[in-house]
Amino acid sequence: MGSPLLLAWQLDRSGVEGLNGVAVGDIDSYMDLRGSKLTRSSLKSTAERLRSLLRYLHRTARVAADLSPHIISPRLYAYEGVPSILERDQITAVLASTSMDATAAGLRDHAILQLLATYGLRAGEVRNMRIEDIDWRAEVVRVRHSKTQAYTLLPLMEPVGEAILTYLRSGRPATDAREIFIRTRAPFRKLDKLYSLVRRRLRDAGVKPLGKCGPHIFRHARATELLRAAVPKKVIGDLLGHRSTGSADPYLKLATEDLRAVALDVPGTEVLA
């Protein structure tokens, strides 16, 4: 989006001929304008796209000088952002609150939240889950991981199975769609997204997490719980459908207090009287 917006911005300011006279000051003004509305990560992406645009404009003789070296983007560090999570008592509160809603939407949302909280699934993995992915006799649920395109067979935990079964029997509308979770209003098709659903249920339960409050917050919580329980990162990665074991590294930050609790005293650091 950065490149088209710059062109539109400059043309609006200076007309068709304005592109010829674009200068470093124009770029600075534009980046200052965009920077106030973007995260550091988005600003870095915008800067990279603008560099490409300015190199192209110079190469095609549309501007006299190559201005791309003048664009400074923020430096990003690996795992600099700590994911938002829910603590176990907050998850319990959300599940309890939603279980009190006996409407079709309530039954559906409770089953979805059980899946998110128990397995740490991605939103797309829940939305795309099909009726045939539940093997009731073997008590197994098949998860299609949206990023790796692999399948994982997970034990169908009792609270999850009960919630899904209740929804299928009493909340799911009659439809030919094979996806489990369906809109409550016509046209009866699979859900488009889960963000607003999760945010509403958190609000209704009086849970106000720091940071984002979409479905991924349950995934973060599950990963952190497993790390705190000393589950190997390879096992966590297999459960959550990670492409690499390094994908679990950001969650290590969330267990800081746990790591401090097992820290060893370093010899020679005693405070002298």
Rank of each mutant, 00 (worst) to 15 (best):
D101A: 02
L7M: 14
A61N: 14
R62P: 01
E48K: 04
N20L: 13
G21N: 12
L95T: 00
D109A: 04
Y56L: 14
V16N: 10
G120E: 02
A117I: 09
S99I: 00
R13E: 09
A96W: 00
D32P: 00
L53V: 10
P83S: 08
A104K: 13
T39E: 11
S97W: 05
L19Q: 06
L5F: 10
P4M: 11
S45R: 15
S73P: 02
G18K: 04
L50R: 12
R108A: 11
G81I: 08
T60K: 04
P4A: 08
Q90V: 05
L5P: 00
I85C: 06
P74E: 02
G15I: 07
D66C: 05
L67Y: 03
V63G: 00
R108V: 12
D12H: 12
L38Q: 07
K44H: 10
M100T: 00
G35K: 07
V63T: 14
S68H: 05
V94Y: 08
S99Y: 04
T103M: 03
W9P: 01
L86P: 10
L121A: 05
L19S: 08
A8Y: 12
T92F: 00
A64L: 06
S52W: 08
R49M: 12
S14N: 15
L86Y: 11
W9F: 08
L33S: 14
Y56K: 09
Y77L: 05
D26M: 10
A23S: 15
Q90G: 09
A111Y: 10
W9C: 05
G120I: 06
S36Y: 12
Q10W: 10
T92L: 05
A61K: 14
S42T: 12
R34G: 02
A93S: 11
A64T: 13
S3D: 15
L113H: 05
K44P: 00
L11G: 13
E48I: 14
I85V: 13
Y56T: 10
S97C: 15
S41N: 11
L5G: 01
E48V: 13
D101I: 02
P69Q: 03
Y77N: 08
T118H: 04
W9V: 05
L11V: 09
A47P: 06
V94G: 06
Q10I: 15
V24C: 11
P83G: 06
R51F: 03
R59Q: 10
R13W: 03
Q90K: 09
V22P: 03
L11K: 15
S52N: 11
T103V: 07
T98I: 08
K44F: 07
